[in-house]
Amino acid sequence: MKATLRALPFIGPHLVIFAIFALIPTVYGFYIAFTRWNIIGEPTWVGFDNFQQILFEPESPFYSQFRSGLANTLIFVGIAVPLLIVVPLLLALAIGGINDRGANIFQGVFYIPGLISVSAGALAWSLMFNRDFGFINNVFGTDISFTTTQPWAWVTIFTLTVWAGIGGNLIIYRSAIANVPEQLREAAQLDGAGSVRQFFAVVLPSIRFPLLYTLVMTTALSFNVYGQPVMMTEGGPAGTTTVLMMDIRDLAFGDGPAIAGIAAAMSVMLGLVLMAISAIQFRVMFRSSDD
């Protein structure tokens, strides 16, 4: 009892904040997925009705909304994740060959956009892609309405995403590659392995754990995509870049009465995907720490 009282001033502040802003909302988040709720009044229990609607009832408007939101999110994840892994990996290899000073400058250039907010970065890129005053149409002599026609709308979203998203992975890969034992590479070189062979035979296996770590983190982050489509295309043209987080936000906090139960059910579905990913992450990391 005395020991608890002594510890309370230290752990108490965090525990209070944790209970109010993490524990209660998380439990409540699962609960309201099984209710009809407008955020203002009391939720009414409806069992699995919300899940039934979004998953199995084609006549429900939320069924098609969930489908297309999920499909667009999967398109984003399917393209963004490989880009966010391969581009920084190639960059790390390339700048690994030059001296530290030069490499640090390149690293800074590629990392800084990651510290710029999505809205500020998107304003800069919106100007780049602007039809009349944009850099791209004017330099290449084209007249494309990038943000309102497909596939360009996706191109603008992926451009912003890759521009802002490669820095962290680049830093991790660069350190990982620098940590590859020099003897391994020399041995491969003596065996007559060229640069490409060395990469696949020596470097890639040596950095597999940081690679897996970044793959899992990047995938989880990509499923949560929200800001890039909101800022670049507002989900258009014709809803083709409207991702699941945008649907969730609009249902719960958009204009008109809140449909928080449906939104929460969608959140739980997205949450299940993310939990599966973090389960993989844990396995990967426990294995890597045994390594």
């Binding site: 955020i39 949560n224 929460a264 997205l270 949450g271």
Partner: peptide, 24 residues
């Protein structure tokens, strides 16, 4: 036990607590 609870709850994706967090 307390530390384990912190760990377990933090595993839940933040998307699930977004709407109730607004209510709080």
């Amino acid at each position: 036990v307390l530390f384990f609870v912190l760990l377990a709850v933090s595993l839940f994706p933040s998307v699930v607590n977004l709407i109730p967090l607004y209510k709080v």
